[in-house]
Write a protein that binds this DNA or RNA. Structure first.
Lengths: 335, 335
DNA sequence: TAACCATGCTCAATCGGTTGCGCAACAATG
DNA sequence: CATTGTTGCGCAACCGATTGAGCATGGTTA
C-alpha cells in the first residue's frame, strides 16, 4: 500500500502550498489569512484521502507536546484502574494526550519508564504510587519536564495524596466498634503493606491512634506489614502464632485477596465470624461476609486536584490531602 | 533551565560529529565503523549530561515506530485490567512501546482514539472489546497500520477471542447441576450484555445449548440482555415480572455488580439462596455467597496469541479461539 | 499619482535524529 | 610505484509539519 499521505500530497491535490495545508489542518488558517475557499477545499481533499497528521513531525517543530505521562504500579486493581480511567478522561477533556505506563511497583522499572516517557517528549509526568517518587522527579527535572506525585508523597515535587492517617483512624474506630462485644478491649491486627512505604506508615499511625483513643494497647507483633502481595499476607497470617486477634485491618485490596484466602482455608469466611475492614475499595470485596467497612479513596477528587496543581503550577513540598470516603459494608451502621 | 541537550550539543562536547553521536547512541556504531574510543567518549559525555534521545525526531526519520497501540473499553475491571497489564509487559519484552487508550465502549470514541494513535505513528493497533472493530480496522488500513482484534471478532482483521460459546455452555451446565435439587428442570435466567455484541450472542448460544442438552426449554423472556452496566442489570431484574428464575447466568462482572446489589436489596445475598454463575473472573466476586462458578478468560494465552499473530502476520478472517478456564466457587465440586 | 494598507498566499528555514555516500589517511599487495 | 583495500569519520539530504518573513495584487487615501 502506498506511502502515508503528507501535507505535500494534499497541497498538490488541493492545488495550493504545504504551508496553507498545514495552517488549515491545525486551525491556524484564519490567523494566517487563508481564505475560507481554500480552507474548505483543503479540508475536503484531506477528508477524502483519509489524511492523518504526523504528530511526530508536528511535535518536533512545536515546543509543547501536550502529552501527559502517568506511571502507575498496576492496572489489575480497582483503585489504580479507576485512577487510570479518570486520568485519561480528564486529560482528554483538556486536549492532552495521556500515556500510561505500568511499572509493577519496581523502582528500576519506574525510572526506565520515566526516561522513556521523557524520550517521547511528554510535558508532564504523574508518578502514581511510585516506590521512589523523588527519583522520577529528578529524571524529569533534568529534562525540563513537570512532575507531580499522586498517592505517595515525594519531597521534590508537589503531591496529591489521600488522608491515609485520618481514613485509617476512622476505619479502625469502626472496626473496634463493630468488634466491641466479641473483642472486649482486645486490639485488632494490621495486615499488609510495607513499613517503609509512607502510606502504610500513615495508616499504621491512624490505626494506633484509634486504639489509643479507645484506651487499647497494641503489641508490635500485631502489625504485619509484610508487603502488599496477596501471598505475602496469606503467609504472614499463616505464620502468626500469637493469641487470636479480635479483628483485622487490611491495608489494601491486594493484600485482602490473601487474607480472604486464608480465612476461607480456615473456615472462617462464610459465616462472617472474623470481622475485618479494608483500606481501599472494591465493590465485590464489600460484599464478603465479615467485611465491616472499606476506606474508599476519593479518586475523582484526587485527579481533579492533580490537574488543578498542573494548571496552577505547584511547588515542591506542596501537598493536597484528599479525605477518604468511609463505606459501611454488610449492614454495619454508623452508630 | 536550559534547552534539552541534543546530539549536536553532545557532539561538540565530545569533540566529534552529530552523525557519530547518533550512531553511537543508537547502537549502529560498529556497523558505521566508529572506533571504540570515540564511542566510549560519546557515551561518557551523554551519560554525564543526562542526554535522552528525542524519539519524535528519531521516528520521523525511521520508517517503523515500534509503538503498539491498544484500544480498550475500560481499565476499571479485572479482566481488562489484566489484559492491559499483560499487554504492556509482552510489548516491552519485545522492545516495543505500548500505548493504551480507554474508550468506554463508545464507537465514536474508539474511532477517535484509533485516529489519534495513527497520528502518533503506531505500527499496530490491538482493538480490544471494540464495539465496532471493523471501523477501527478500516482506519488502520487507510494508514497502513496493522490491526488485530482481541475479545470481539471482526471480519476485516485477524481475531483472538475466548471460546465464549464453549465457556458459557460449560458454565451453564455447572449452574444447572448445582441448582438441580431446587430447580427441578426449570430454566436459568441470562442477565447482562448486548444482544448485538458477538460475545453476548455466542454466550447465549452456549447457555441455550446446555439447557437443550439437559432437555430444558428456555422462554425468551428469561434472556435479559439489557446492556453491560451494573445499573442496567439491576433495573432489568427489578422490572422482571415472570416466575422466579431458578438461577442466574450473569454475562460479566460489570453486570454482576448490579445483580448482587439487587440480590442484596431483596435479602437473597447473604444466605447464598440464589445461585448464580458469572462469565469473567474476579477474585472477590468468586467469594460471594451463591456464586457457583466463573468462566475465567485465559488472558495470558490470549495475549500470547495476539503477539504470535503479530509476528506471523495473520490474515483477515483468521480466528484464534482460546478456551476459558472454569473456576468453581464456594465449594462447588466438579461432579 | 504616490503612499499606504489589507488580503491571500508562498518560501525557506527549522525542529533533532538518521543514513547514503564520499573523503582522507594509511596499509597491503602486485 | 601504482593499485586496491581498510579504517574512521563527516557532509548533507531527508523525514513532515510549523512559522517568520516576504511578495504580489487590488483597493483606499492624501
Amino acid at each position: 500500500m502506498g506511502r502515508r499521505k503528507t501535507i505535500y500530497d494534499i497541497a498538490e491535490l488541493a492545488n495550493t502550498s504545504p504551508s496553507a495545508v498545514s495552517a488549515v489542518l491545525n486551525g491556524s488558517w484564519e490567523k494566517r489569512r487563508i481564505s475560507r475557499d481554500t480552507a474548505n477545499r483543503v479540508m475536503a481533499v484531506a477528508e477524502e484521502h483519509g489524511y492523518e497528521r504526523n504528530i511526530q513531525a508536528s511535535l518536533l517543530r512545536r515546543s509543547r507536546s501536550n502529552i501527559v505521562g502517568m506511571v502507575i504500579p498496576k492496572y489489575d486493581d480497582r483503585y489504580f484502574g479507576m485512577i487510570a480511567e479518570r486520568f485519561e478522561q480528564l486529560a482528554r477533556d483538556r486536549g492532552l494526550f495521556p500515556v500510561i505506563t505500568c511499572t509493577q511497583r519496581d523502582g528500576d522499572l519506574e525510572a526506565r519508564a520515566a526516561r522513556e516517557l521523557v524520550s517521547y517528549q511528554v510535558d508532564t509526568i504523574i508518578a502514581t504510587g511510585a516506590t521512589d517518587p523523588d527519583r522520577i522527579t529528578e529524571i524529569c527535572r533534568a529534562a525540563g519536564v513537570v512532575s507531580i506525585n499522586l498517592d505517595l508523597p515525594g519531597s521534590a515535587a508537589p503531591t496529591v495524596i489521600s488522608d491515609n492517617r485520618g481514613g485509617a483512624k476512622e476505619l479502625t474506630a469502626l472496626l473496634l466498634r463493630t468488634c466491641n462485644e466479641t473483642a472486649q478491649g482486645r486490639p485488632m491486627m494490621f495486615v499488609g503493606g510495607r513499613p517503609s512505604d509512607a502510606n502504610t506508615s500513615a495508616r499504621i499511625d491512624g490505626f494506633l491512634e484509634a486504639h489509643a483513643e479507645a484506651g487499647i494497647d497494641v503489641p508490635d507483633d500485631l502489625i504485619l506489614a509484610c508487603g502488599y502481595a496477596g501471598e505475602k499476607a496469606f503467609a504472614a497470617l499463616d505464620a502468626f502464632r500469637g493469641p487470636e486477634p479480635a479483628g483485622l485491618f487490611v491495608n489494601s485490596t491486594i493484600s485482602l485477596e490473601g487474607v480472604v484466602r486464608w480465612l476461607k482455608k480456615n473456615g472462617r469466611l462464610d459465616d462472617g465470624s472474623t470481622r475485618f475492614a479494608c483500606f481501599d475499595w472494591d465493590p465485590f470485596a464489600a460484599l464478603i461476609p465479615g467485611n465491616v467497612g472499606m476506606a474508599r479513596q476519593d479518586v475523582p477528587r484526587m485527579l481533579d486536584a492533580v490537574f488543578q496543581v498542573l494548571e496552577d503550577g505547584g511547588k515542591p513540598g506542596d501537598t493536597v490531602l484528599v479525605p477518604c470516603i468511609l463505606e459501611y459494608c454488610n449492614d454495619t451502621t454508623a452508630g
